[in-house]
Design a protein around this nucleic acid. Sequence first.
DNA 1: AATCCGTGGCG
DNA 2: TCGCCAAGGAT
Length: 293
Amino acid sequence: MPDETIAEAAIRWFRDNARVLPWRHPDAGAWAILVSEVMLQQTPVTRVLPAYEAWLARWPTPATLAADEPGEAIRMWGRLGYPRRALRLHECATAIAERHAGVVPDDLDALLALPGVGAYTARAVAAFAYRQRQPVVDTNVRRFVARAATGLADAGHTTKPADLTATAALLPAEPELAAQASAAFMELGAVVCVARAPRCAICPVVDRCAWRAAGRPALEGPSRRPQTYAGTDRQVRGLLLAVLREAVEPVPRVRLDVVWPEPTQRDRALRGLIDDGLVDPLPGDLFTLPSGR
DNA sequence: AATCCGTGGCG
DNA sequence: TCGCCAAGGAT
């Protein structure tokens, strides 16, 4: 099919090769898709799957989550990481209940105004839940588009307006096909056009890939150095919050003190959690997950 | 714009 | 073993 566009080839491949994921099921509504998108922010699919099912079984609508305590959302989040996402998702559910009559909005600007919903998640919901023609650009799509359309080994570290433009240029005009193409681009980036060892041999777009045509040039710029985790405030925050997640009753400070020997960093981490609204201090030097009022 | 924010699995 | 990183967002 030499006349096939990149999007057409990707869609055709996606129909036969897409992973079966619950948020892709026809029964998945906008709320379920929104929940999945937030959970998938920086967390692998395999770890999201059980948490996603449990979350929706407990809170099948935004209103049910909004009616519960934010601390319960943090507890339910478990070990997905970045627990601020759980708090934001609770705030998001509250905003949907109060401002949108309990219905996840379909308008891009309304979605962008929701807590914890950024450029990626807003467009993902618009495209996957409401079948709109929106460029859905995550790290996988940026890499796929940078290679296939632009010929670069990878995109920059941060998403720029040019990434949206470049992706939108590849989308079919018809909204339903555009939504399918967006899903296909993401899947290709996640499964085939991966960062380390791209599987060009099975790529449905290899014939039209600019990067392949250029001989797969290597990445030029300096690689970003990921900061180490051990010994950081993030680790300490994680340890502190783990204690509170498991506790049924408010926890005395001494039970938090034992998770980290260095008091300055420990106090800074706890103060940070309180500032972020992830922990509530109570009279008597007790601490809990936030009850919400 | 650069930095911060968790977690666990894998080569 | 341990560095590396996986569907971002907020500041």
